[in-house]
């Protein structure tokens, strides 16, 4: 969502830059007027950004409230005094480090698995498109997108239990498997645009298929890797249903499931819940801020292809 609000802004900035040199030599204006600000659009973007900032404000304010500050007022007021203790309490109650590690373990390997498996599959399918088997396997993979997940969850649980996969390892396996059809679809569109001539030159130098993939294709896939990686990261980090039903040992449970602790049937501990949500959100937020450039370009690429 953050991406979509920032995107038009950067696009308009690029527009301005493109027009600036054209206008420059004709009418000599001061540099200040060269960057003409579209105030209407800016105002619109400011309002639009509230859709992100306001909920975020509520989350932070709520996380800092004590029990008796929650029910009072409109909810917009900043809590004074701030109750930093909520974070410590939520940290202890969820056994945060353990749940965090478990979630991180699942996420990291889900992302790596998604990148490795889908790119290999896509490469194999595209370069063997003239063979019936590969075209068929493409349709086979795509058909998985039409099966609603809740329909197959109980048989899957039975199956994974038989295989000894009722643990985070099984969640990773299913994350990779679940994403393979969509991710392959993305990759295939991208691999098609890579000219075969690039490969042929490598072949001339004696590269094997694996070397071609590893040294030529995979690096060229970088923008699509970013897209797939981001989707896989978000899907895996925020997943609730699969870990909730798959992981048998409560000690290995992931953050979104452990956070249910604060929501009883009739009682919700809002301040602790939001403190814990913020802590769980932090890595995603940090990754986004650091990787903003790739996130944006990645999202746009996914949109066009």
């Amino acid at each position: 969502m953050t991406a979509s609000t920032a995107q038009p802004h950067s696009a308009s900035a690029a527009n301005d830059r493109r027009q600036a040199p054209m206008r420059g030599p004709l009418v000599r204006r001061s540099s200040r007027e060269g960057f003409k600000v579209n105030w209407w659009l800016t105002a619109l973007m400011l309002v639009a950004s509230l859709t992100i900032l306001l909920p975020l404000y509520f989350t932070v304010a709520m996380a800092l409230k004590s029990a008796d500050q929650i029910g009072t007022g409109t909810g917009l007021a900043w809590p004074l005094p701030m109750n930093w203790n909520n974070f410590a309490e939520a940290y202890v109650a969820t056994n945060f480090p353990k749940a965090f590690l478990s979630t991180a373990f699942v996420t990291v390997f889900s992302v790596l698995g998604a990148l490795a498996s889908s790119s290999l599959v896509a490469y194999a399918i595209v370069r063997n498109w003239h063979r019936k088997f590969f075209r068929g396997s493409f349709v086979y993979l795509l058909s998985a997108m039409f099966i609603p997940f809740p329909v197959i969850i109980l048989p899957l649980i039975k199956q994974t239990a038989l295989l000894g996969l009722d643990n985070p390892g099984g969640v990773i396996f299913l994350h990779v498997l679940g994403g393979i059809s969509f991710n392959t679809l993305l990759y295939i569109a991208f691999v098609r645009s890579i000219p075969v001539e690039l490969e042929e030159s490598a072949r001339m130098d004696g590269a094997t298929t694996w070397q071609v993939f590893r040294k030529i294709i995979f690096p060229l896939l970088a923008p699509m890797n970013a897209t797939v990686g981001i989707f896989a990261f978000l899907g895996s980090w925020n997943d609730f249903l699969l870990p909730q039903m798959m992981i048998a040992d409560p000690a290995l449970q992931t953050l979104p499931v452990v956070q249910m602790l604060f929501q009883g049937e009739f009682n919700t501990d809002y301040s602790l819940a939001f403190a814990s949500y913020l802590m769980a959100m932090a890595p995603t937020l940090v990754v986004y801020i650091l990787a903003q450039r790739w996130v944006l370009s990645g999202v746009m690429r996914g949109a066009v292809k």
Partner: peptide, 15 residues
């Protein structure tokens, strides 16, 4: 364990 949503899956797992 307070994850009641895991009860039915645990029966399916026979564990």
């Amino acid at each position: 364990d307070f994850n009641e949503g895991n009860f039915v899956p645990s029966l399916v797992r026979n564990d």
